[in-house]
Simulated scan of single mutants.
Amino acid sequence: MIAALAMAAAACSATMTYAAGPAGDPVKGKTVFARCMACHKIDASNTSGLGPNLNRLAGRRAGSLPGFRYSPAMAGSGKVWNDASLDAYLTAPARNVPGNRMAFPGLSNPADRQNVIAYIKSASK
């Protein structure tokens, strides 16, 4: 009986998939990122405009790019940027980090968020 349950559990876990979200399409993400380009850029200069440079954003602690003046809310958020934290932030920036300075209302479409995240990662130098 126990062996049968163990085999059933193994078979079930072998067929289960964990929803980590779609990987995103960086080509489509570049189109979505056009909305972000008024304030953000992604290049190796690491110089910023109205918003911080997003080069090598993955794994960076929020509010930590040298030379950019972040809001106290962002600098103190304790976030580390990864796919999940970016997805949550891009959904509704003002709600995700209350008091941050980014006026952008967010991306309501999950595919747009996944695509722009894929683009940000692919464009990093």
Rank of each mutant, 00 (worst) to 15 (best):
residue 67 G to D: 03
residue 62 A to H: 01
residue 66 P to C: 02
residue 30 K to R: 15
residue 23 A to E: 15
residue 54 L to F: 08
residue 48 S to M: 02
residue 67 G to H: 04
residue 67 G to Q: 05
residue 25 D to A: 08
residue 29 G to R: 02
residue 36 C to M: 11
residue 42 I to N: 01
residue 37 M to F: 14
residue 33 F to I: 11
residue 45 S to I: 00
residue 56 R to L: 15
residue 55 N to C: 10
residue 65 L to S: 05
residue 57 L to V: 12
residue 37 M to K: 14
residue 50 L to A: 14
residue 67 G to W: 02
residue 58 A to Q: 13
residue 32 V to T: 10
residue 22 P to I: 08
residue 59 G to P: 08
residue 17 T to F: 14
residue 22 P to H: 00
residue 20 A to E: 13
residue 20 A to P: 07
residue 61 R to I: 13
residue 59 G to Y: 13
residue 42 I to D: 06
residue 23 A to W: 01
residue 54 L to Y: 10
residue 55 N to I: 04
residue 26 P to K: 03
residue 24 G to T: 03
residue 65 L to T: 08
residue 42 I to K: 03
residue 42 I to V: 14
residue 34 A to K: 14
residue 63 G to H: 04
residue 58 A to S: 14
residue 60 R to E: 10
residue 59 G to H: 09
residue 65 L to N: 08
residue 44 A to H: 04
residue 51 G to V: 01
residue 54 L to D: 05
residue 48 S to V: 01
residue 61 R to Y: 10
residue 40 H to E: 11
residue 51 G to I: 01
residue 50 L to M: 13
residue 66 P to V: 02
residue 35 R to P: 00
residue 24 G to L: 02
residue 45 S to F: 00
residue 56 R to V: 14
residue 42 I to G: 09
residue 42 I to A: 02
residue 64 S to A: 07
residue 65 L to G: 01
residue 49 G to I: 09
residue 29 G to F: 00
residue 62 A to D: 04
residue 16 M to Q: 15
residue 31 T to V: 12
residue 62 A to M: 03
residue 53 N to Q: 07
residue 23 A to N: 13
residue 60 R to Y: 05
residue 40 H to R: 10
residue 47 T to Y: 01
residue 57 L to D: 08
residue 64 S to T: 08
residue 42 I to R: 03
residue 32 V to R: 06
residue 28 K to H: 02
residue 35 R to S: 11
residue 29 G to N: 07
residue 47 T to G: 01
residue 27 V to L: 10
residue 30 K to M: 12
residue 28 K to Q: 07
residue 35 R to A: 14
residue 56 R to A: 15
residue 39 C to P: 06
residue 17 T to R: 15
residue 36 C to G: 12
residue 43 D to K: 04
residue 49 G to C: 12
residue 61 R to L: 11
residue 54 L to H: 05
residue 60 R to C: 07
residue 29 G to V: 07
residue 26 P to T: 09
residue 39 C to A: 01
residue 41 K to D: 15
residue 63 G to Q: 07
residue 56 R to K: 15
residue 24 G to M: 03
residue 19 A to R: 08
residue 36 C to Q: 06
residue 45 S to Y: 07
residue 17 T to H: 13
residue 31 T to S: 14
residue 61 R to K: 14
residue 31 T to Y: 09
residue 64 S to D: 00
residue 26 P to G: 00
residue 19 A to S: 12
residue 28 K to A: 15
residue 37 M to L: 13
residue 40 H to F: 07
residue 41 K to P: 13
residue 32 V to D: 00
residue 37 M to Y: 13
residue 23 A to V: 12
residue 65 L to C: 06
